[in-house]
């Protein structure tokens, strides 16, 4: 792209340095200190005393839970979301932006109301049961399945949207050409369409994976507090002003995820799929 437009990035770079880089640096510093709100600044010291937090049982379990739920959510959202995005592309509806708005519309309602609504119908006795006479989802409140269900159907719009935008650009004649050459529809999809939509898949996966990894409200409500994710712990540490512990965990998550994103970019021959 033309160098002429580099100037446009400048304000954002400054913005990122002020609002991301400096706080990030501060977080790293806080994570190696004993800082919390009730200490005055003169008492703050550099210490690694709280780093055993990283190896405590509940932290490890929470990390594992976050990874497992975020990965599963991303995979399931990808499979179902890709399917739906593909169907929308093939549908005859002309104005597909309307469809996309419809897909994302549920997210405009408050997350707590939606999640408690889901919890409501996952209970044994619920509002839907009092109308239709049976439990639609069964009595699953508090189970891992409930959490996964909630996560998938909350974040899936974030998967559908970028995949659709990627699919939408693909020239229909490519598909026709492939079919004319006698390639089976499945092979056409796998060899032609899918690779071309990969950028959308990657964007969608990032947008589903990151919020699920760091979030906590949905698992907390739908597991009835029985499943602890790393987001819960960070949130609690900050709420009770144990800033050093909270920062430490937040920094570790950031390093792990940004590091893995970076590694993927390095090893990716094209180097373009991810970023």
């Amino acid at each position: 792209m033309n160098k002429l437009y580099r100037g446009l990035a400048r304000p954002y770079q400054i913005w990122l340095i002020i609002l991301v880089f400096i706080p990030l640096l501060a977080m790293v510093l806080i994570s190696i200190s004993n800082y919390n709100a009730s200490l005055s600044l003169s008492e703050v010291q550099i210490t690694f005393a709280d780093w055993d937090l990283l190896f405590q049982h509940q932290t490890l379990v929470a990390f594992k839970n976050s990874l497992v739920y975020a990965s599963l959510t991303t995979i399931i959202s990808f499979v179902l979301g890709y399917f739906v995005a593909y169907q929308i592309k093939q549908s005859r509806i002309k104005n597909k932006f309307i469809i996309l708005t419809i897909i994302i519309l549920p997210m405009w309602s408050n997350l707590i109301l939606r999640t408690e609504g889901l919890l409501n119908i996952m209970e044994e006795n619920n509002i839907l049961k009092s109308i239709i006479g049976f439990s639609l989802l069964g009595n699953i409140a508090g189970t891992p399945f409930a959490v996964l269900f909630g996560l998938v159907f909350t974040y899936m719009p974030f998967m559908i949207l970028p995949i659709y935008t990627a699919l939408e650009k693909i020239d229909i004649s490519l598909e026709e050409a492939s079919q004319d050459l006698g390639v089976t529809p499945f092979k056409t999809f796998w060899k032609v369409i899918f690779p071309l939509s990969l950028k959308g898949v990657v964007t969608g996966s990032i947008m589903v994976f990151l919020p699920t990894m760091a979030g906590f409200a949905i698992p907390k409500i739908l597991s009835k507090g029985n499943i602890v994710l790393i987001g819960n712990i960070i949130d609690q540490k900050f709420l009770y002003t144990t800033f050093n512990d909270g920062s430490l965990l937040a920094v570790v998550i950031l390093i792990v995820i940004l590091g893995s994103l970076l590694i993927i970019t390095r090893f990716d021959k094209e180097g373009e799929t991810l970023l």
Binding site: M207, P211, A214, I257
Partner: peptide, 11 residues
Amino acid sequence: NNVPILNADIV
């Protein structure tokens, strides 16, 4: 650019 999306909201 990914940091604001990834970082815990409270942080």
